[in-house]
């Protein structure tokens, strides 16, 4: 229970810090699309500059990715809340874990597309690598949540069967 409380506190802190960042992000996307300014950042060790439609597309993709991750964090808080109430193997937890898994995988795919487009528009080249990238890491985390939801589903069945027997 101590660990659960500690994890809940950490997740709460990250959640409360990520909400203002989300609003700042919205403001930034709107400002950049309104003024049409160019944006420069370092990618793969080189300075890249994006502007106009390309910049808006990349920023929107990044915003959606960030939004999905923040939403999955919100759902994870709900899961921890259920655990705190000792509701371990119920339908709510299973559905939440399944949704978190799907959201994290979706954010990984969007992050990959965003980086791919940035790379393509900046250097006019298509690169693919098998090294640990966002798609692999977020895909892994998402798949782990999917597996957890299935294992929890089996535990729920066991629990229900047990309760029926009693």
């Amino acid at each position: 229970m101590k660990r659960l409380n500690l994890l809940k506190t950490i997740v709460d802190i990250i959640w409360y810090l990520s909400i203002p960042t989300l609003f700042i992000f919205v403001g930034f996307v709107l400002y950049m699309s309104w003024t049409g300014q160019s944006f420069t950042k370092t990618l793969y060790g080189s300075m890249i500059t994006l502007s106009g439609f390309k910049l808006v597309v990349v920023l929107c993709l990044n915003f959606i990715t960030y939004g999905l991750l923040v939403f999955s964090l919100f759902l994870f808080r709900k899961v921890l809340q259920e655990f705190k109430q000792l509701q371990l193997f119920n339908q709510v937890v299973i559905a939440l874990l399944l949704r978190i898994g799907k959201l994290v995988i979706a954010s990984g795919i969007l992050m990959f597309i965003s980086k791919f487009l940035t790379n393509y528009w900046s250097f006019n080249q298509i690169t693919l690598s098998l090294s640990p990238n966002d798609l692999l890491i977020y895909g892994g985390i998402g798949a782990f949540f999917l597996v957890l939801s299935e294992v929890f589903d089996r535990a729920r069945l066991l629990k229900e069967e047990n309760e029926l027997t009693v």
Partner: peptide, 15 residues
């Protein structure tokens, strides 16, 4: 899902 996760974990370990 488990097999996908196993492949990803192997890639992470090897890299």
């Amino acid at each position: 899902n488990v097999q996908t996760l196993q492949v990803i974990t192997w890639v992470l370990i090897i890299s």
